[in-house]
Amino acid sequence: MSPRGRAPDRAQWPEPAIQLRSWSTAALALSCAVGLAAFCWPLLVAPGAGLAHATDAPLILGAVLACVLVVVHLALVDGGMDVKAVALLGLLSAVGAALRPLSAGTAGVELVFTVLVLGGRVLGAGFGFALGATTLGVSALLTGGVGPWLPFQMLGAAWVGLGAGLLPRAPRGRLEVAMLAGYGAVAAFAYGTAMNLSFWPFTLGADTALSFVPGAPLGDNLRRLLAFTAATSLGWDLGRAVTTAVGVALVGAPVIALLRRAASRARFVTPEPRHAEHRATRRASGATFE
């Protein structure tokens, strides 16, 4: 059973599951700009803008974000994607989606981010981005979380995966797990805050002391937002951050080992998009002919 046989000791860093190329990197960076604007709209919006009505902005920006997500994914897989990466993306999204209902409702317990952080770390930034978005999308399809917030959630989770893939490569062993646990806590907390920021006017309505006031000075709105966050979701966000960190600390080492084993067995091939597909395939997959 040699194909499933002992995994050879390969280089510590296997090929990333989705290779970032120049155009896809550009699309990814630009999408971050769009996303940033969409998440921070209450702080950026001009007083007279049509978007200032609290309930419409998330819907319209959500639609824009959904389209941007689709386009970025197209750019990521332009020219083809290794079938193993497709299958792995599907299976890991399923793992995330299967964990999500387990944790939904229990005060911020979100195990999804553990999967995203570890997956992004081992399989690369591009894969982490795709994994974050598909995991949240699939779990929304399965458990009923489709709504205007879905594109925001998908983009937020995609960033969590992307960031994990961009962390410094050097740390190994306990240090690596500690770094990932720390990153996971920060990223999960930032995710909650960002979601809060973009949906704060939507959730709270307009007639409380903590509500968003369009066009008010940045500092004022920020203070109201902080108060709102502290009053409502702080516990959840902290809970999510703690669960993610604890999850990474508990299963980090064995799961990283598993993912590395899978990645080195998979030998991802990202076919060159334009020319000489066969040659590239052979070189990257380690397949040679004598």
Partner: peptide
């Protein structure tokens, strides 16, 4: 070897 890597002579 296309999928699983390795050398085929």
């Amino acid at each position: 070897p296309h999928f699983s890597g390795g050398t085929l002579a």
